Computed example of a mutant assay.
Amino acid sequence: METTLFHVFRNTPLGREILMQSLYFCNEINASIVIYIPGYTKFLMYFDNDVVQVDLDESYLTAPETASAHALELARGAHIDPRFVQPKNFTASTLPDLPVNFDFMCCPRSISDLSSKISLGHIGPKVRRIINAARFPVLMPSCLFKEWQSILVFFGGSVNAVKALKLGLRLGRDTGKPVDLFTQADGKSKETFEKILAERDMAREVAQQVREWHFFETGKFEHNLYAVPHNALTVMGAYGHGVVRDVLFGSTMEMIQTHLPNTMLIAGPNYVMPS
């Protein structure tokens, strides 16, 4: 079955960099891309347990006469033949309904703020809603296109952390890139985490595929993040309202973003592993 990534294109320099990240991701995992060029500043996504209205800022409607050509040029430059989605259903005359049957979706950190207002340490509320509701992982690219040479999974032992680890290992197999783990022990021993892997029959797979396990029993979490390679795709599991309980408590996802410019792939609580 074909793997697809959904991308909402913004016809601006920032939008160009983000589309380049999506295209690179697709090439790495051998996926196709579906591009939506907005004709309105709002759209709806109907998930199983939530309906998310995404409110775009006006920059997403920049120069509509060149948007398709720019997106097509970038895609062909990456040797990808894109598919452009056209909304078929509308909840209101200016409120299109977009499909959600994709394997991945690309979201910048905030899809409803002007690029000048997007801070490194802020995840927009609509992006949180998508992460919480979607059955697919959400790709949150860095603001400047950068190839990644490895995959790093934040692993804290929870159910969602295990799903994120499985996702990271799958990406490692698909791309041939090395996989690393990052764990802030938070008072637990390494044996505790190894037992979790053993109980889920993942110990051998992790031992064979993981290149390095960054395991921190001391030090502040934000200081230990320096160990994350600058050119790594980071993978993590989120739960509830979008916080990463697996690593620490509180707004850990914001803490990671504040200190890491890396591209992130986030698997939310409703993420379903493909069979």
Results as ranks from 00 to 15, higher is better:
Arg135Cys: 13
Leu167Gly: 04
Phe136Gln: 01
Asp180Leu: 06
Ile151Ser: 03
Lys166Thr: 04
Ala161Lys: 04
Leu120Phe: 02
Ser158Glu: 15
Val179Thr: 12
Ser119Ala: 10
Leu144Val: 13
Gly156Ala: 10
Val159Arg: 14
Asp174Ala: 09
Asn132His: 08
Gly168Arg: 09
Asp180Tyr: 06
Lys146Asp: 03
Trp148Ile: 12
His122Met: 01
Asn160Asp: 15
Asp180Glu: 15
Asp180Ser: 08
Ser119Lys: 13
Val153Ile: 14
Ile130Val: 14
Lys177Arg: 12
Ile123Gly: 00
Arg170Ser: 12
Phe154Glu: 05
Gln149Glu: 15
Met140Pro: 02
Val162Cys: 07
Phe154Trp: 10
Arg173Ile: 07
Leu139Ala: 06
Gly168His: 11
Gly157Arg: 03
Gly172Glu: 09
Leu171Asp: 05
Asp180Val: 00
Thr175Phe: 08
Asp180Gln: 09
Gly172Trp: 04
Ala134Ser: 15
Glu147Lys: 11
Val162Arg: 02
Ser150Gln: 14
Asp174Val: 00
Cys143Ile: 07
Gly156His: 00
Lys163Val: 02
Phe182Ser: 04
Ile131Pro: 02
Pro141Gln: 13
Phe154Ser: 12
Gly121Ile: 00
Met140Trp: 03
Leu152Asp: 08
Ile123Lys: 00
Lys117Arg: 12
Ile118Cys: 05
Val127Gln: 05
Leu169Pro: 01
Arg135Ala: 15
Asn132Gln: 13
Arg173Phe: 08
Phe145Ala: 05
Pro178Gln: 08
Pro125Leu: 07
Leu120Gly: 10
Lys126Phe: 00
Arg173Ser: 11
Gly121Ser: 08
Gly156Ile: 04
Asn160Phe: 13
Ile123Glu: 03
Glu147Asn: 10
Ala164Glu: 05
Val138Trp: 13
Val127Phe: 01
Ala134Glu: 11
Gly176Arg: 11
Lys163Ser: 06
Thr175Tyr: 12
Leu169Asn: 04
Phe155Thr: 06
Gly168Glu: 11
Arg128Asn: 07
Arg173Ala: 11
